[in-house]
């Protein structure tokens, strides 16, 4: 059983940082890259299955050198192999096209992705990867039971408004994992240091069969402008000593209830 987990490095939200765009990418003026939250749950869930049934786990990411940190973390957490696609592709269509090729090459039985990246917020890559491989895809999975001898996986997934659905899905398939599927593990610094000694595989889009001029055809959106959210801050911000503010709030609550 081979599990591949798509892990995205996202900019760490620290202090005041600025955004810019060249039309194809969104750039954040920030120093460090962290593992996207729902992808971390997907990774930890995969590693749980490694421990339970001896599955092999490959962590995949797409990005520049800085996103390699994500893969070292994945290795420290217990992933067996790590692959970085060296590309600056930003749109879900391009990203999914490249990841789909990498998954195909790795011959993974089960692909896990997180439900959403905190930076692009699209929730599209998993579904596009699945369709590019013509595999079944389930979104917002909250539990996974791999039945290796039947070649299936039994999942529970959210449908919204508190509705849950149980499904049996044939492998190979792609699942978008919801946050909270399992407890997150902690990788101690010593293990993270050791992980840096391991070799990472790096492939560029050409090696996956997508030279720039071909990959460009998969770019189907253009970011024309980045702006501050046009939502007026509706809240009246309360100033004063904590005691004054507290008294004011308690009075408003009393009036409203």
């Amino acid at each position: 059983m081979h599990l591949a987990v798509c892990c995205k490095g996202i900019p760490e939200e620290a202090g005041n940082f600025s955004f810019s765009t060249d039309g194809n990418h969104l750039s954040f003026d920030t120093a460090s890259v962290i593992l996207n939250e729902s992808d971390e749950y997907a990774l930890d869930e995969a590693i749980r299955w490694k421990k339970r049934i001896g599955a092999k786990v490959t962590a995949l990411t797409l990005g520049g050198l800085e996103s390699q940190e994500i893969l070292y973390l994945a290795l420290a957490k217990g992933a067996d192999e790590a692959l970085r696609i060296d590309s600056s592709a930003g749109s879900p269509w391009e990203v999914a096209t490249l990841l789909g090729k990498a998954v195909e090459r790795k011959e993974a039985d089960l692909v896990l992705v997180g439900v959403q990246s905190a930076d692009h917020m699209a929730s599209l890559v998993g579904g596009l990867v699945a369709e590019s491989l013509r595999r079944p895809f389930i979104f917002a999975v909250t539990s996974i039971e791999i039945i290796a001898d039947r070649g299936t996986v039994i999942v529970q997934r959210e449908l919204g408004e508190g509705r849950l659905q149980r499904l049996e899905v044939q492998l190979p398939s792609v699942l978008a994992v919801q946050t909270g599927i399992c407890p997150l593990t902690y990788a101690p610094p010593a293990r993270r240091l050791r992980a840096r000694q391991k070799a990472l595989e790096v492939l560029d889009p050409e090696q996956l069969g997508f030279p720039a001029e071909i990959l460009g055809r998969y770019r189907k959106e253009r970011i024309e402008e980045i702006m501050a959210p046009m939502v007026p801050q509706s809240a009246a911000m309360l100033q004063g000593s904590p005691q004054e503010v507290a008294a004011f709030i308690v009075e408003r609550i009393r009036e409203a209830s």
């Binding site: 809240a235 911000m237 709030i249 209830s257």
Partner: peptide
């Protein structure tokens, strides 16, 4: 703060006990 009617920028650990004390002092209908 985009959806709230009133906002307070404060550290919860220090502010909430102050709010709790104020709520305890206030008469509570219902």
């Amino acid at each position: 703060f985009r959806v709230a009617h009133y906002g307070v920028v404060a550290d919860l650990v220090s502010f909430l006990p102050v709010l709790t004390a104020a709520a305890r002092r206030a008469p509570q209908p219902g």
